[in-house]
Design a protein around this nucleic acid. Structure first.
Length: 521
RNA sequence: CGGGGCGUGGCGCAGUCCGGUAGCGCACCUGCUUUGGGAGCAGGGGGUCGCGAGUUCGAAUCUCGCCGCCCCGACCA
């Protein structure tokens, strides 16, 4: 696999033929695979180029680098504020769960048993094998009851809620926790499915079924708001089918987004748990009439997976694209100079402008590095997804203006110093809106109404897939057959869906309305 | 866990078939000149060739075992 003789551009790892850089061969830094060429490699390249995360020594776990973690911190800050606005409080429950807890709710065990990491010992012992010192679990330290590293916290939390709840006066309990969880996945992908991931999990307890239902729907609406307003990611809200429901839930609701490769991604879930966990953990309360009853529960979560969705919805072949509202750095100022004196003047002006902008638009970075030229910096900040670049050189200084360049559409325009804060604020708003509009347009262009099975198969096999609105008989077995034959699943039963009766796209039996089908992550 | 591809300075790769003591581009460091879309020259630093055994006078290269990464399945969301 030699380098290309014509241009000396090195061949890519793992492929036979040398791959030429596009017209601009200088793009050696990031070297991002095009989406059209290899979508999943593109995804990995973007993560690397934007320095969001890296693989760790442990398979399936990732190191989230500062650029990636800044996004997560903004997600946390925004959601946390919203949760609290709605009356929730934060708490923390332990990482380790007694093995027996997992077994208490029948469906819950079934759902998670296959992907649990188990702690069996509490001590290591030095041993010498073939003359080399190594460590092994000390057999004498075997735990009497083994612990499971939480795949989710329903069980520990409900064990605790039993102790906290006696009367209706103790309800509702509206607790959220920010935590890491572990699910031993066979196949992992950065952010989208990692063995360990970060999330928030809300766990609430209520006096009535209706109140629980309302909470579930309210939190789903929070996720919809967050995805659409903050992440500029249009989503479909709706109920999951029984097959796709959370293990132990009465009803699961989700938000579903469409990625640029036309695969769907579940970006947040909210579960109405009914009385299942209250019964499993014997959590009862006495109501006003003195009657003793099991409490009603919900849980809801959004994880670092959403960062994967964020990457795939907006980014392009030059790297990451972030909506301003979630970007860690809103704008970067690139000073341009020739002489030392110009450097001093331009940098001083850049600092003044940054100081002026920060209170209005948030974090603004001034890139004063003198070991690379402006063009290099442009490309680098583009790869990292900073929404707006401000170019400031001697000519701008003379004209009392900066050049603003938007990351997502390359639009460049001048903005005078006297109106800079308003101009930058307005441009960031335009970018935010534009990203949403662009994503929504793409989703609409890739959403189809299907009637016949042949058309359904053809859509996903030959016409690029996307979202398909089709009739479904409601039978889980039929749903499974569709999945087995086409890899397509029902993403959800959208709120406000078309409930005109029809015939199931697969089996032709009567249907009470359309559902959303897609191939999914 | 099945099929395929791949592990060589930070990144991307050559060298492996045919064994001879490791090289290229970029990045990095120093200096000078540069700086409005990926700068130039000169000098310099950095690699137990994924890990472990074996064959050999000698292993990145041959043999065996293991580990990891990527893609496609299975599992799962």
């Amino acid at each position: 696999m030699p380098a290309c003789r014509r241009c000396a551009y090195p061949a890519r790892r793992g492929r036979g033929a040398p791959v030429h850089a596009p017209a601009d061969e200088g793009r050696a830094m990031a070297n991002i695979t095009k989406r059209s060429e290899d979508y999943s490699r593109w995804y990995q390249d973007v993560i690397q180029a934007a320095e969001l995360a890296e693989n760790s020594p442990v398979r399936g776990c990732m190191v989230i680098r500062p650029n990636g973690y800044a996004i997560w911190e903004n997600i946390q800050a925004t959601l946390d504020a919203k949760f609290k606005e709605l009356g929730h409080v934060n708490a923390y429950f332990p990482l380790l769960i007694p093995k027996s807890f997992l077994a208490k709710e029948a469906e819950h065990v079934e759902g998670f048993a296959k992907e649990c990491a188990i702690v069996t010992h509490h001590r290591l012992k030095q041993v010498v094998v073939d003359g080399k010192v190594t460590v092994v679990p000390d057999p004498d330290s075997k735990l009497e009851e083994e612990y499971v590293i939480r795949p989710t916290s329903e069980t520990v939390i409900w064990d605790q809620y039993r102790k906290w709840i006696q009367s209706y006066r103790d309800l509702p309990i509206l607790i959220n926790q920010w935590a890491n969880v572990m699910r031993w996945e066979l196949r992992t992908r950065m952010f989208l499915r990692t063995t360990e991931f970060l999330w928030q999990e809300g766990h609430t307890a209520h006096a009535t079924a209706e109140e629980g239902r309302q909470e579930t729907l309210q939190m789903l609406e929070v996720y919809r708001w967050f995805a659409e307003e903050i992440l500029a990611m249009p989503v479909i809200t709706g109920a999951k089918t029984a097959n796709e429901r959370f293990a132990g839930a009465v009803e699961t609701y989700s938000i579903e987004a469409l990625m640029q490769d036309n695969k769907a991604l579940q970006a947040g879930t909210s579960h109405d748990l009914g009385q299942n966990f209250a019964k499993a953990f014997d959590v009862k309360f006495q109501d006003k009439e003195g009657k003793v009853e099991h409490v009603w529960a919900t849980s809801w979560g959004m994880s670092t997976r959403i960062i994967g969705a964020l990457i795939m919805v907006h980014s392009d072949d030059d790297g990451l694209v972030l909506p301003p509202r979630i970007a860690g750095t809103k704008a970067v100022i690139v000073p341009i100079w020739k002489s030392d004196q110009e450097m001093a003047e331009v940098c001083a002006a850049a600092d003044r402008i940054a100081a002026q902008l920060r209170p209005v638009v948030g974090p603004v970075h001034v890139d004063k590095r003198d070991n690379m030229r402006p063009g290099w910096k442009y490309a680098e900040w583009e790869a990292k997804g900073v929404p707006l670049r401000l170019e400031l050189g001697p000519r701008d200084l003379a004209g009392q203006q900066v050049m603003m360049a938007a990351r997502h559409d390359r639009r460049k325009q001048a903005a005078g110093f006297d109106v800079l804060a308003e101009a930058v604020g307005a441009e960031l708003e335009r970018i935010q809106q534009d990203l949403f509009d662009r994503a929504l347009k793409r989703r609409e262009e890739n959403t189809h109404v299907v009637e016949a099975w042949d058309d359904f198969v053809d859509l996903f096999a030959n016409r690029g897939g996307g979202f398909a609105h089709g009739h479904w008989c409601g039978d889980g077995a039929c749903e499974k057959r569709i999945q087995d034959e086409t890899k397509v699943t029902i993403r959800n039963l959208p709120f406000g869906r078309d409930e005109t009766p029809g015939q199931c796209v697969k089996c032709g039996r009567p249907s009470v309305g359309r559902v959303v089908f897609a191939q999914a992550y």
